[in-house]
Design a protein around this nucleic acid. Structure first.
Lengths: 333, 333
DNA sequence: CTGGCCATTGACAACGCTGACAATGCCGTC
DNA sequence: GACGGCATTGTCAGCGTTGTCAATGGCCAG
């Protein structure tokens, strides 16, 4: 900036004013300064700006995603960016890859960069270590997964109720032997889904036909479902607790002796659409939008006590839960 | 930092030394300072650090992705993060959503934040405006899409050759009437794929049976493929130029009068795996890894002239290009 | 005992920018 | 013709941190 100033024969302060569109600058000076800015390729150093300005926000929010490769978070992220862009805020993203240690490190660098606010999809089971940041005034909103013992805003989907919707739907189709295929319930969302699954069955006076929580990926889900379907009293319906399992479970069903076994999956995916799999859908964009708006409410000065927003899920019937089997087997459609 | 210093009765400089593990600090002082740091939740302000230190890198690289929702870039990104993490660099990501104006804005904020280097998947057709940044010493590597008239490193896949592989494969299966379904060739990758497609056919003395470049998404691809297959002299094989079209084209084939029409798609996807679609696969992780390593080579001081790394593609036969049709129709597999 | 070496700590300036305040000079008004 | 008001520009300090240089004092060899 000093270079621009001397090249345009003005003070650095005047250059600063031109950069920030301060109105009372003579056209002559403004023109000279802008010309030099372009000629020299000057870019204000946001480190310096952020250092000097402590009062007003610097215009950047951080998003810590647990897994960027997951289309669910990609959609959430895109909605967040949209809200932020509308406010002229930059969105910076980092991914913890479901690693709590990495998550802590990244949150640290976000805090060090003095971003105006953070949206966190946490892979961690403890959040006590964030209390100091909170006390210092860092604004955060947790999304998709709730904070543990940390008084902070969060936006979640109704996982338990969603799993209940799936069960209710299958019960309505006449199924009584319903099995669960899913994640080990270490993550909050998986725990909630399992809880909702069991609760809905209990309410109908039933027990789960089986609960498999060893389906860490599509291949494991394929194995688990195949084993369930190979037993003499196989379940007539399966509930898969996350969209990464669709392919594996659908294939197991198609390959089994009971290709009409019903299937409902938590969360939508392109694969579920193509295969005609009935799903309980969350709206990742809405999740992101609400989280971002909550964050900006805080940045605008809202100091009320932490809020917890719970978004409803939608059951989308596509055939696999209504007696038509998955499209992998039943051609045409 | 000042608070920590006075609380521990030392100078700020000493606190700075403790933070940076300067070796010659008495255990007593180090202990007191660390205790106060924890008690007060102190975090160094990276704005100030970045401002003061101009010589050595600050430890952050930026990635500008064209579309984070695309699993291809998600994989690339993950590989970049892995390389950066191994070097103790933080990776910050932003998405242009294929909007050149947005891309320019985001590149601007990256430059303003004085990150040590950038990896760019550009949605822009012009890059002249980046020349000043380059002159100022900003390190950049273009990935997946080449820079236009900008002397800068880039890492690309062999798009034209890959499309050629697909054509050669289909020719080997006896197909002579091969149609192209794809993107409008405004993006470099689409242009290259179309070029490679045409070149490989020309080499065999053939013409494309048809070229549809209006398939902007799966639905449009479905329409385009359905129209091609409904004509009296329908093609016997289709080449789809990107993975977003798989579902649409596969469905069009399954619904058509010629469900055995061959299909090869550029880029792998989960859907292609499940449907048994033959693909020409790039390795997104390798792309990201190479780009990141190239960038770090530059950060380590390499000043040689810009390099252009081209990565080969692999043809993965899964049935749809070998006369078995897509699994959507042919059950079991 | 003295000088030199080195571990330990501090004072100070500067990084690039902007807020606060002040100076300049032109204008119209009474 | 003096004065207030306002457009325009400048000076200076300080944001939080670190590089530079220097001060302090303990220890050991000569």
């Amino acid at each position: 900036m000093r270079d621009v100033a001397s090249a345009a024969s003005v003070s650095v302060k005047t250059v600063s004013r031109v950069v920030h569109n301060y109105p009372f600058i003579s056209d002559d000076v403004r023109g000279r300064v802008q010309a030099e800015i372009r000629r020299l390729g000057f870019r204000p150093n946001s480190n310096a700006v952020g250092l000097r300005r402590t009062d007003r926000p610097a215009g950047g929010i951080g998003v810590l995603a647990a897994d960027l490769a997951d289309p669910f978070y990609a959609g959430m992220l895109s909605a967040i960016e949209q809200v932020a862009t509308a406010r002229s805020f930059t969105t910076l993203v980092a991914s913890s890859d479901e690693d709590p240690a990495r998550e802590r490190g990244l949150l640290g660098t976000f805090v060090e960069r003095r971003l105006d606010g953070l949206i966190v999809v946490s892979a961690d089971r403890r959040h006590d270590h964030l209390r100091p940041e909170l006390d210092v005034g860092t604004r955060m909103v947790f999304a998709d997964r709730p904070p543990q013992r940390l008084p902070v805003d969060c936006v979640l989907a109704a996982h338990a109720e969603g799993a209940g919707q799936a069960v209710t739907h299958l019960l309505g189709q006449g199924h009584r032997a319903i099995a669960y295929v899913g994640h080990s319930p270490v993550i909050h969302t998986a725990r909630e889904r399992l809880r909702g699954f069991q609760a809905a069955l209990a309410e109908a006076g039933l027990e789960p036909h089986a609960v498999r929580t060893d389906a860490v990926d599509a291949a494991a889900a394929h194995r688990a479902a195949a084993e369930l379907l190979a037993t003499p009293d196989a379940p007539t319906a399966l509930f898969a607790d996350n969209p990464r399992l669709v392919g594996g479970v659908a294939r197991a069903i198609a390959e089994s002796a009971a290709p009409r076994t019903a299937l409902v999956v938590f969360d939508d995916s392109e694969l579920a659409q193509v295969l005609g799999v009935t799903v309980v859908a969350q709206d990742p964009r809405e999740l992101g939008r609400r989280a971002a708006e909550l964050l900006f409410t805080r940045l605008d000065g809202d100091r009320s006590r932490p809020r917890r927003v719970v978004l409803p899920t939608t059951l989308v019937p596509r055939g696999s839960g209504e007696g038509f089997g998955v499209a992998l087997r039943s051609a045409g459609r």
